[in-house]
């Protein structure tokens, strides 16, 4: 594997029971770039991104073959602790999923479970994360209100802040705007572009315009296969594979 890669998958196959969801996926994620994964529903794009922080292990009856590297280390080795991987590779989900706790506790949770006890430190980190997630101005006067009282878009930014608090190296976004309105979507997209400076980002999206707007690289998945992977510009302007072109021009999907 190339040293310039942040994450990299090598011949990854994934099965739900006997059904193969991913076939021989080889994909590189470059540091401080946004990598978008597009494709029609059921093409395995969410399944793939959830492998990158070993989230699919929580689903029973699944099999995984191949290798996934993070900074050159194979994260699928039995000696690797998935909890440690998930701390380094954070994830934001399709539906905003704040805990039924207050805003402060939602963010400090990640620090607490990583045994950080220093109160001053936690407070500083919470403020910092909220600022980074562009939510601070909206919630600074009500940090102890329930997170469930926030709007959908605010909740999603809160979930991003919750991820940022544990200082991951990679951020995975699994259709982060699927349940948001256009204005909230724009805010999240702006945020992704901002976060790119400090983090490596992978985003799964349904929305091709979104991929075109935020990503540097794009991979197109179809029926569990990676059809094409290239610079976003290339994928959208001059795709090599006719299936990619068909999808992007809206002929199916």
């Amino acid at each position: 594997m190339d040293d310039s890669m942040k994450m990299c998958s090598e011949n990854v196959n994934f099965f739900y029971g006997r059904q193969q969801a991913l076939k021989e996926i080889n994909l590189n994620i470059l540091p401080n770039k946004v990598t978008a994964i597009i494709g029609p529903s059921g093409c395995g794009k969410s399944t793939f991104i959830r492998l990158l922080n070993r989230m699919n292990e929580l689903v029973p009856h699944t099999t995984l073959t191949g290798r996934i590297y993070l900074d050159g280390q194979d994260i699928l080795m039995p000696c690797v602790d998935p909890v440690e991987i998930r701390r380094r590779v954070g994830m934001v989900f399709q539906k905003p999923n704040p805990f039924p706790k207050n805003i402060f506790e939602n963010i400090s949770y990640g620090l607490e479970v990583n045994s950080i006890r220093n109160k001053r430190f936690i407070e500083e980190r919470v403020v910092e994360s909220l600022k980074k997630a562009a939510l601070w101005d909206e919630v600074k006067d009500r940090l102890y209100d329930s997170a469930l009282n926030l709007s959908g878009g605010q909740q999603q930014r809160l979930c991003i802040a919750r991820c940022l608090a544990v200082k991951p190296e990679v951020l995975l976004f699994d259709e982060p705007c699927a349940s948001l309105d256009p204005i909230s979507t724009r805010k999240v997209e702006e945020l992704i572009l901002e976060l790119k400076k400090d983090y490596t980002i992978a985003i799964v999206t349904h929305n091709m315009q979104q991929a075109a707007r935020v990503s540097d690289y794009t991979g197109f998945f179809l029926l569990g296969e990676l059809i094409e992977f290239d610079k976003t510009e290339k994928i959208f302007k001059a795709p090599e594979d006719h299936r990619t072109e068909d999808y992007i021009t809206g002929r199916f999907g």
Partner: peptide, 27 residues
């Protein structure tokens, strides 16, 4: 308790026990 709560907890590096005590049981 929705699966999304557990996933959110795992995603920030909590283990199963922490998730149970701090998220699932309070919820």
């Amino acid at each position: 308790v929705p699966r999304s709560f557990r996933e959110a907890s795992f995603a920030v590096g909590a283990d199963r026990w922490q998730t149970l005590i701090k998220v699932v049981i309070p919820a």
